[in-house]
Design a binder for these strands. Sequence first.
RNA 1: UGUCCGAUGGUGUAAUGGUAGCACUGCAGAUUUUGAUUCUGCCUGUCCAGGUUCGAGCCCUGGUCGGACAACCA
Length: 561
Amino acid sequence: MDFPENEKKSLNFIESIIEEDLTTNKNQGRVHLRFPPEPNGYLHIGHAKSICLNFGLANEYNGLCNLRFDDTNPEKEDVEYVDSIMEDIRWLGFQWDDGPKYASDYFQQLYEWAIQLIKEGKAYIDEQPQELISEQRGVPTRPGINSPYRNRPIEESLDLFTRMKNGEFETGAMILRSKIDMSSPNMHMRDPIMYRILHQTHHRTGDDWCIYPMYDWAHGQSDYIEGITHSVCTLEFEIHRPLYDWALDQIVEGDYRPRQIEFARLNLSYTVMSKRKLLQLVKDNYVNGWDDPRMPTISGFRRRGYTPESIRNFADRIGVAKRDNVIDVSLLEFSVREHLNQVAPRAMAVIDPVKVIITNYPENDVEDLELANNPNDENAGTRKVPFTRDIYIERDDFMEDPPKKFFRLGPDREVRLIGAYIIKCDGFKKNDNGIVEEIYCTYDPDTKSGGSGAKRKIKGKAIHWVSAENAIDAEVRLYDRLFIDENPDGHKEKDFKEFLNPDSLKVLNNCKLEQSLKSVVAGDKIQFQRLGYFCVDKDSTENMLVVNRTVPLRDSWGKTK
RNA sequence: UGUCCGAUGGUGUAAUGGUAGCACUGCAGAUUUUGAUUCUGCCUGUCCAGGUUCGAGCCCUGGUCGGACAACCA
């Protein structure tokens, strides 16, 4: 125990509400949440925050959490998105209770409630053109005016609504509005639209319906039907809450009633989060699909090599509150490094190779060295790595004329080859273009790792290497942030795409990996020592391994350079 | 000249009238066969003005600043 026994864990404001409700036995002490995505795009890291929140809360309070697709707009929705959303939630490690739900499951009930409202004189059919209706609605600072159809006879509205449903009118010809208050300071209360005509095939209900309920006439009711107690959503719905409550007032019987609670959505620095903008990046080929490793989508992070644990930890750390926030991407990167540091086996890879010839090493000898898979974790075991006369090292681990603080290879300098020997540079050869082609070294046979002279101190650091004869060829994809601006969509005069990072993807084709990596499969995560965490990409073929860099290691040298 | 919401270090987030804490970032240092990890230390904060109170980041009043709202989107 790190803390006194009666010290309470601090609660976020939603937990406080739930605990308060629990102590008053509200809704018979039930806790039932839901995650309600619209299937019109792929889930992103902002959704991950919401998913972790809702499912996490259910977990914490022994409650339930539904997955409900808010599929009331067939124009934008598609099963492709339904499938990807379910896959992403499962991957994150959550399970919804009792099968996926759909707002479209409730179309009949919603329709009947609408009829009830018409009969009660609380809803009417308006057949004015859209522009007129919008004009009459007024502006936030000025009240609207009543529609001339506002007081049309109930029988007439009933008849029209039935005919709307039966497909007698064209898309957009008329709407069903609730009769609330055209002078309300809250725009959403000015006789909001409940139903519109949409001759559009729905991905689940097909052509059963040609009228579709609006969000505000579906969401609270769906919550009510499912027995949701705490309906958690993002801040932009705050102003809808009076309408949410109004809709509930029309249908609630008994003590149970869901409550809407709003929290601030996640914003991440150096990225965009709006579905519309992400869709644009995909559709206009600025990235290679929704799961492009540069995308802030859950599938993008998955392909990039992020783990569900790291995303869940991230979600825990960012907290939940109502103030607008911009989370530094470095926190996400910290979370993934933290987890991968524990679980990713280490290996050596040279991504920008230059050949080193160890001139005093026997030409055809091969030594099988036994290296730890994770020097920080004995349980990770060991692997065999072949050592030979010709090896590759990283081009930037050698300098012809190195400064004092450069602790790697250079003329007359010594470095330790990780898990092998100390070598000393005796010379090098350049090609006609002045590029270093070969580096000549001698090794000190007494300094073999684990051997008697292994502890010999040198000024140089340890560097990674790969046996030239035994290397595996690979393509390495180096990803960097997609945008060069901290807040790409925060500029009024400039389109967010102007801030796209031209170097967000660098493909390296001449990379050399150690032999032990030949059996990796897509999704495997490895730390390439001194380089970063990498993940085998699904584009890999039998002939060419493709590896994504998830995130580089922290680099205090790179900063001081 | 509307309604609603918000304001704590560079970034997030706690403190629920009683010592402003934690994490990330940044900066130093120790250890290191990964310039990683690990460990240690440091920097930096209650939007402003009044009021209530023995005591206010917290309660009240007034300002300031920021966000949301005028789709037949969600």
